[in-house]
Design a protein around this nucleic acid. Structure first.
Lengths: 353, 353
DNA sequence: CTCACTACTGTAAGCGCTACCACAAAGGGT
DNA sequence: ACCCTTTGTGGTAGCGCTTACAGTAGTGAG
């Protein structure tokens, strides 16, 4: 006998089963199932009676039984390296909202950097309980990719490349270019960059691209890039603050503008500049990427990457796929919009070197 | 016949079932189940053979079948009003980590303010698929509480009161008092407060308590509270920035110190003060609550509420409960620690009024 | 009036496990 | 030698659904 055979302790009342509804409505369980799920033919009359009976009993289908019998679980996994960072939590909001609208549950898998990477990949792949998954900024080794395909779980990536799977992202290279070109257009020649770590941390592929965009734009304008001005601050406010404090310390050899790969870093840079007595944009122009809410108070010029929308769009594509749509693993590129505020301005009269 | 009867499309290979393992190991399915789950008596020899067979086949138990048969799902729900705000995402990190360690899955329910409140409460209560749930800052109506109990899902609350359920939180009243007393101890008499909205938004019960703590500390020191100095900024940086801009505009009638109920608001206040040409802590002392990473760069004095730990602790209590521990619905109060930095200092020579 | 179809409904066979039961074998007292 | 407990194992009845399949009307065409 199964575990549920006995009376349940907490309330002493077993939840109604589909069978109970069938009896009450005077139809078979098959008809109840069809009436409630909307699949197959059911007469309006039977449907109404079933619905009323279900209502009266407070019946809700058993998730597990339904999943076991049908093979579908209306449950989608979301894999991300962090939840306490702006980009990820914002994408997650988008994903969660879209999934809720569609009536799907969301199972969260947080890598915490790489701490649970192995566990997540193993557990989440093997326990066959997901209809599909959204992977946010998740670069995969070839063997990992292999596993993923073997598991046969439809997957869509957000915010980074994902071999063989459809993805939703912005054009990070272009973003880097445009941000830098904006500064160049204002007359800046001495432009530094603040980005994330290049290596070791495998979950920030966009780092490389935005930095490359900066380099390309600089090169395209015939400007040289000082390697000492290519800094790493790991996308954090405080990290950027410290880096910027160093970068801007020497009044005779400092950049006139900074392109930060995230708004948090951009804001940290502005704070550091002010602490050093510099004015923004008078002495230093700063541009970020994100449209992070903190940017407003800082008057930060930025490129809005519509993080939330990236999340909702990823879900839309996943659902299209699940309902039999085409599964061409195309990379959908969302536009990033320039948001002009007050942290960038024309370069001041040349000062130092 | 059930849906899975036919061959599966994607890989053309059906995943191995427990039955397959049993055949390969030369034992019964019952023994396989016992060997793999660790429950019941199994000889070392049989266990080894089963494990090897499972390994070779790449067998993993079907989550749904196991849950249906056992009534347990190793799946815990987390309900919160936002995921893109520091407190919530940090608690979520803690919860997710603890759950992962314990081998539980985590299903996320995001209210998005109150947008999905109804849906979540309904769906999540009725579809019997959770072993338990963690509710973060979730005040419940009496009927909602009723529902929750009727569903019989063990529940623990974080960061706010939850009638009839065990909770984990800090003492917000005390936090408000201590923060204010710190300022009073430095000689401040004119102290403003920045908090969240009192009404309408039902998910910030801590707002009221911290504000009350401020009022109590003021009263305790024989100081009066100017209602105009009790501001609402909804826990956001930019909201606080705007409020503080107004608050601090009049040089002859402004507070010498601000207690903000969150670090983000405290940081926004500091930025506003600087924009107005005030120095911190020279002209204005600011203290927050949270130990938000952004506070470091601002030199923000704060009370660390160990948000992440609140999450892990909640999970610990839940798991204790699930493994038959006592279920006294006690409120566990975690300590908040004072973090001295540079945003608070002795009051300057009296100025205005 | 028959045939071909379609709309509807019930029967029942699983989905892949878990855990109860029965039973065998192996100690451990007395 | 006896009974009683403990350990190890297999058989098997469900857990609560979904969905082929078959069967019964109803309906318009020929």
């Amino acid at each position: 006998m199964a575990a549920n055979g006995g009376p349940r302790g907490d309330t002493g009342v077993n939840p109604p089963r589909l069978q109970d509804v069938a009896v009450r409505a005077g139809v078979s369980t098959a008809t109840v199932s069809r009436a409630l799920s909307g699949k197959g033919h059911v007469s309006p009359r039977a449907r109404a009676r079933v619905q009323q009976a279900a209502q009266e009993l407070g019946f809700v289908v058993s998730y597990h039984a339904s999943s076991l019998a049908s093979g579908r679980s209306r449950n989608i996994g979301v894999v991300l390296p962090h939840v306490d960072r702006w980009f990820f939590s914002t994408v997650l909001e988008g994903v969660a909202g879209a999934l809720m609208e569609a009536g799907y549950d969301l199972t969260l898998y947080n890598f915490e950097g790489d701490r649970y990477r192995e566990t997540v990949l193993t557990d989440f792949l093997l326990r066959k309980r997901l209809d599909a998954a959204v992977a946010v900024s998740l670069p995969l080794d070839p063997p990992e990719t292999e596993q993923l395909f073997a598991a046969g779980i439809p997957l869509v990536g957000v915010g980074g490349p994902l071999v063989g799977a459809p993805t939703v992202s912005i054009d990070d290279l272009d973003v880097g270019r445009r941000a830098t070109q904006h500064l160049i257009g204002l007359g800046h020649r001495r432009i530094a960059h603040l980005g994330g770590a290049e290596e070791g941390r495998r979950y920030f592929p966009m780092s490389r691209d935005r930095r490359d965009g900066w380099e390309q734009a600089m090169a395209g304008a015939g400007l040289t890039v000082d390697p000492a001005w290519s800094l790493i601050a790991d996308y954090t406010f405080t990290g950027a603050y410290q880096q910027a404090k160093n970068l801007l310390a020497d009044p005779f050899h400092r950049p006139t503008a900074v392109f930060a790969s995230s708004d948090e870093m951009a804001a940290g840079t502005i704070l550091a500049a002010r602490d050093l007595g510099l004015t923004v944009p008078g002495d230093l122009s700063v541009i970020g990427v994100d449209a992070h809410p903190i940017g407003e108070a800082f008057g930060l010029t930025t490129l809005d990457q519509h993080a939330r929308q990236q999340g909702t769009r990823a879900v839309e594509r996943l659902l299209e796929h699940l309902s039999g749509g085409s599964d061409e693993p195309s990379n959908e590129v969302l536009p990033a919009h320039f948001v002009a505020r007050s942290s960038t301005g024309p370069v001041a009269a040349p000062h130092g070197t």
